[in-house]
Design a protein around this nucleic acid. Structure first.
Lengths: 211, 211
DNA sequence: TTTTAATTGTGAAATTAATCACAACTATGA
DNA sequence: TCATAGTTGTGATTAATTTCACAATTAAAA
């Protein structure tokens, strides 16, 4: 396995998540085998792309009979197995933070939000089963649950400070909703979601697409 | 200008949004000129990338003296100008929908959320200044405000039905938070944000990056 | 006015990603 | 058992994206 020092989210890896989700859907509908074009259609990519992606991860099917869904799911789980039941924290209980802390799908996908944090003591409580704690407890929680990944949902202004602090406390990966590009050392994974940018690009392309 | 029939979000276009955001930050800090490497560092890309992106959009600087921030901002606004003050609706007032309806930055970026919709009458109200309406009013609002873009924040199960309905009513672009790949005709722009996939890929890479 | 040092702008090269095309395989039916 | 039709798996090709490298430019200093 090649070592990664710089974080680059590869398209084929990301698509595996989509495939898994589609496969679970197919299974629920009663299918037990599928062809690459079924999965491609459902996942919004070409059949060749599906096969190519599987080939990258050495996932094999049966010529003529396609893929057994259970085998595919097992193979995909194998790729991601060591990351199941990872503990994650959320920092910032504004609108976005509150939405994420209540988002049930993380649990379905075996990602465990162990705690959330906010600087505002009036927000600190135990609603939704997941405690909202003061920042002073970051150290304790991160150590106790061996947390390596944090979701940043604090305002733009405080994001960099919080991230610096979290890196000191051992956090290695960030899903960042604050609209800033975070300055981090090598080896720290940062993935940004900028909601304004996302909406704006939809508007941009909507106006460019031919009628 | 080449016609686009298939929606592909180009990287260079998306980076323009980031550049704009960084430039506003630089301006706020009192700068009035910058070099490509300043902007690159702030935006998390190389200086060459910055210059190449500008070159794609015919944005020129001054050799030796870099770029005037105001000129850059004007040039970027020019690229996106016809999409300012676009009206957008949000469908689905679950956790995500509620967070988005309260998200102030959309307005700062001149994107106007004119209304939100939910099937559940108990959620229908006028909190946060933006009305929450029943689905029956979609037609009226879309026509009245010439809405072309919708944010989908409904549960997985109802997403495709809602989208079909919205396309019938004239919606051309979707920012989709439901964890399904939507089936849409050509010429309809769909951009998916799957929060589980995003978090999961951070976890995946966090475990792969060398210590 | 001339020189210098620093930066832009952009072809060319390299890398990454997607699509094409078809040989190899195999379940099925004759 | 054999032929057939329908899929997979993957090299080859094409396309998109990034990086490299350096000529052209120019502000500022001499």
């Amino acid at each position: 396995m090649k070592q990664i020092t710089k974080y680059v989210l590869r398209h084929d890896t990301k698509r595996l998540f989509t495939y898994r989700q589609c496969l679970i859907g197919f299974k629920r509908k009663g299918f037990d085998r599928i062809f690459s074009y079924n999965l491609g259609e459902e996942a919004g990519v070409t059949a060749e792309q599906v096969r190519k992606d599987f080939s990258v991860f050495k996932i094999k099917g049966n010529k003529k009979a396609g893929y057994k869904i259970d085998d595919l799911l097992t193979a995909i789980e194998e790729v991601f197995k060591y990351q199941l039941n990872q503990h994650v924290i959320i920092v910032g209980m504004g609108n976005i933070g509150k939405a994420l802390v209540q988002y049930k799908r993380f649990m379905l996908r075996k990602m465990i939000i162990v705690a959330s944090f906010d600087i505002d003591p009036t927000k600190q409580s135990k609603r939704w089963g997941i405690p909202i704690l003061p920042l002073e407890m970051l150290d304790d929680i991160i150590k106790r649950f061996h947390v390596k990944v944090a979701i940043i949902a604090v305002p733009e202004m405080s994001a960099q400070d919080i991230v610096n602090k979290l890196i000191d406390l051992g956090i290695k990966g960030f899903l960042n909703f604050a609209p800033v590009i975070l300055k981090t050392p090598e080896n720290i994974v940062v993935h940004n979601i900028n909601l304004c940018d996302e909406l704006e690009s939809v508007i941009y392309y909507t106006q460019k697409v031919v009628e």
